[in-house]
């Protein structure tokens, strides 16, 4: 099998140019799709018969919560690739993922809290999904803290990659133990949300927003990856020529 296409991803100049070329292809569709999905969700979708207008929070909340997990998986995958094949660009991508993922997690927590107040009458409920989300936020903080504490870039890359991989093994265990922990307590009576079966007019803006946020993540990742490569290769000659051109 021919692996040259794979090896090209390991080259910082190649990835730098590729990221610059690809960014608008993700950023513009993301922007358009966010506007469309917001219009669909806030204007076109009918109000929920049970939750009223408040349910519209789901159009921001559910996609951010979904992204918080997807970004972690992407980060851990990039870290594992970096660890196994010693690819610097993969480490740079993992480093670029962390702040984006932490932001999505934070947004999911804040919107969840805003969503919870009108729905359950409380800003915070020790519900398994909320609790796992909070733990995920701390995992991101730990990852970024470890990366920031080590000065040597290569050591920071490899050490934090081990942490990201350990986290992937542990995240499902944490998730199920938290669910198990909560099911032992009395079932929260305020919260009988479950999985709402959405009608078509309500569902398509949600799916569109999910796609929009995924595109947004890729666009942000490409921008941050370029910034990471710039910082890491600041003394490289190709970069000097690149910037002079």
């Amino acid at each position: 099998m021919n692996w040259t296409w794979f090896h090209r991803f390991a080259s910082p100049p190649h990835m730098y140019r590729l990221a610059r070329r690809l960014t608008p292809w993700f950023a513009w569709p993301a922007a358009v799709l966010i506007v469309v999905a917001l219009y669909g969700g806030l204007v076109l979708a009918p109000p929920d018969y049970q939750q009223g207008e408040g349910f519209r929070m789901i159009y921001v909340h559910a996609p951010t919560a979904w992204m918080s997990l997807m970004v972690y998986t992407t980060m851990a995958f990039a870290a594992a690739v970096g660890l196994i094949w010693r690819m610097k660009v993969a480490h740079a991508a993992a480093a670029a993922c962390a702040p984006i993922g932490a932001s999505f997690t934070f947004a999911a927590l804040v919107t969840g809290s805003l969503y919870g107040e009108p729905m359950w009458g409380t800003w915070w409920e020790w519900d398994p999904r909320l609790t796992s989300e909070l733990i995920l936020f701390f995992l991101y903080l730990g990852y970024m803290g470890l990366r920031g504490a080590i000065e040597d870039t290569q050591r920071a890359d490899r050490t934090s990659a081990v942490l990201a991989v350990v986290g992937v093994v542990n995240v499902p265990i944490i998730h199920y133990s938290v669910t198990w922990w909560n099911s032992l307590h009395q079932a929260p009576s305020v919260m009988r949300l479950g999985k709402p079966t959405l009608s078509g007019a309500m569902l398509w803006p949600l799916l569109a927003m999910l796609l929009a946020f995924t595109l947004l993540f890729v666009a942000l990742l490409l921008v941050r990856l370029r910034a990471e490569i710039l910082a890491r290769e600041r003394n490289a000659s190709w970069l000097r020529e690149e910037l002079a051109a």
């Binding site: 733990i135 701390f138 542990n170 944490i174 938290v178």
Partner: peptide, 9 residues
């Protein structure tokens, strides 16, 4: 910060 989240289970 690293150890406590992993120790929750």
């Amino acid at each position: 910060l690293l150890t406590l989240p992993l120790s929750l289970p």
